[in-house]
Design a protein around this nucleic acid. Structure first.
Lengths: 359, 359
DNA sequence: GTGAAAGCGCTAACAA
DNA sequence: TTGTTAGCGCTTTCAC
């Protein structure tokens, strides 16, 4: 009773010891009982659990993790969060983690390489058991990732992956998806096809461009260099990109946009210019917003398995964690699907092109 | 050299001691140097920092937090993440936290009360310094929140807040916003107005309903009980809600939807039924998706300051944390704004109503 | 079945 | 300016 009268400095945080003292047993007994260790008798366990509940005991993760040398926590770094794609991926990660009783620590780089690095540091400091990372647009220095690998911490790249060996990756089949879209466009009669593409140093920018070029080449359609524009993945990039096309004085029949936000920028630009989709210029994009079918006009797109991308990334990380000694990097590529709404369903822009040029 | 040859069990995690040994100083010196404590000489600091970098030292937050009794971490619980509203709020929280050098631990309840409670427990176990919470649709048991308050842990409710005293709250001015929308609708001539509303036990459902009723009453417009439908905040709720309206055999001129996803459900339902917005039934909603203006037709809405909601919630929590002894709960209500696109701009549905009924 | 001792990596108070 | 001593709350041997 009188043996240890500590004053609790801030708020009341009940500890193992409080429970132990109350029942006249040791901390260890309580710890074991609470964790379901087989050592302790059923009666004791029951008593302890009752008291714990009564006192409002919350185990201290800091202490537990420090002592046990694992955190049951996976760190996640994504470029953005207020985008349907990432929001959905993240939901996949969270659901998978919840099922496995893992905690997620999510951080957002805002497409900023420096911030991304800071988050990596934070997460390593938090001693997360593993990491899931989707690179920022800007990231060009990959040296930390080697550090992480050397420390033996599982790291899975997702969607935005670097050209590096020795890491898990989970991506959608960007190249095949882009190919399918452009192939379809060619099949319905388009020839003058522009691509508002991402930066080539990013895998998604690169792969989707390749898909585009593959299809053009395979069907013998000429690529107009003026019509291949490089930029970021956001709405403003799409807007600027389309304006650039417009400035060339000659509009394509169809624009293939590298992401949904980029396509949205095209909607905005065309609206501003008084052009109609698909009459003046037709449009298709990689990725979905969850409400493409309600747009004006409903936009056809390459659907990505966003939620599954997240789940898979988590599972890969966990797997890696469980066999960290015999780690073999896995590269998962999930299939995409061409979804046709109203744009890019038949050749419409061609006939009207003259009108657009006369303006 | 030979004094302490520990084997590092999993991966190599450099500790203060490693650095200390390397330089022949004590752990404390290193700790202080790395934290910028004024005790240590500039020369020593430099040497220590160099070695730390060389060795790839990452401070162990678990240990640091355990020792210092604070985590520099705020826990966040939201019902959903793949919704423009929450995604944007969360971005606000993250940005504010980043500025202040705080870490965020985000959890998602999926509108599930049980899951929410589990997350509360987890976060308390992690010894977060404070909490930001947006209630799930289901939550009805508020007892944990009192526990939290009794522990002296700052808790700020955001957007979805309970009817409780003694907590910080940050909300949009739901009642005034709803009022403004309905007032506008009445002003342009609508009288037969339906409300696809949320559950009344949620503050946003309740307040937005009140705004609706206030306006109807103030302008002497009669409320048709068949046209006030209660439900959740998701697309399916909007879909079902509209179908319910449709089943009454008499359609209103205008629907006021409690959230953007609910309005989207109305788009879907009307499309399926072959009805046109705004010709057959007009529509306006509370909240934005970031791309309302690209919908078919562009939907008018009550804009909420989502990002600011998040920022404010974080700042309130932090403030509370800094003066936890003299805590006075604050209740922040941020203004909303009526944004007119193409729906609900002039009375159109009235004339066509007969057609809709003849079907 | 239960508990004592040691230690996880760090920080805070106090000496030197 | 630097180091010593004690913990933070928990888990993990290993002895009883």
């Amino acid at each position: 009773m009188s043996q240890k009268q500590k004053t609790h400095p801030r708020g009341f945080q009940i500890t193992l010891e409080d429970i132990a003292n109350r029942l006249g047993v040791s901390k260890v007994t309580v710890s074991k009982a609470l964790r379901g260790h087989p050592d302790i008798s059923a009666g004791m366990v029951k008593k302890i659990k009752t008291v714990a509940l009564e006192l409002g005991y919350y185990p201290n993760f800091m202490a537990r993790n420090l002592s046990s040398q694992k955190s049951n926590t996976i760190g996640v770094i994504v470029p953005k969060i207020a985008h349907h794609f990432f929001a959905s991926v993240i939901e996949g990660i969270y659901d998978a983690a919840f099922q496995r009783n893992y905690e997620i620590i999510l951080t957002v780089s805002q497409e900023n390489a420096e911030r991304e690095l800071q988050h990596v540091n934070s997460l390593l400091s938090m001693r997360v058991d593993g990491l899931i990372l989707s690179l920022s647009q800007q990231t060009k220095d990959y040296s930390v990732f080697h550090t992480i690998r050397d420390k033996g911490i599982p790291l899975t790249f997702m969607d935005r992956v670097p050209k590096l060996d020795g890491f898990n990756t989970v991506v959608a089949d960007d190249r095949a998806g882009a190919f399918a879209a452009v192939e379809h466009a060619i099949n319905i009669g388009y020839r003058e096809i522009a691509h508002l593409g991402g930066y080539l140093h990013t895998n998604i920018g690169n792969e989707r461009s390749r898909g585009f070029l593959d299809a053009m080449k395979q069907y013998g359609v000429q690529v107009n260099p003026d019509w291949v524009v490089r930029g970021g993945f956001d709405e403003t990039d799409g807007y600027k990109g389309f304006m650039k096309l417009h400035e060339t004085g000659r509009l394509p029949e169809l624009v293939f946009a590298v992401t949904f936000p980029v396509a949205l920028g095209v909607y905005r630009a065309m609206k501003e210019l008084g052009l109609k989709i698909p009459k003046d210029v037709d449009l298709i994009c990689f990725g979905n917003s969850g409400l493409n079918q309600f747009l004006d006009p409903p936009m056809s797109y390459i659907d990505q398995p966003t939620y599954e991308l997240g789940q898979k990334a988590f599972e890969l990380t966990l797997e890696n964690l469980q066999r960290r000694d015999q780690f073999v990097p896995q590269h998962i590529k999930l299939p995409t699907r061409l979804v046709l709404c109203e744009t890019c369903t038949k050749k419409t822009a061609g006939q009207k092109k003259v009108r657009a040029l006369q303006r």
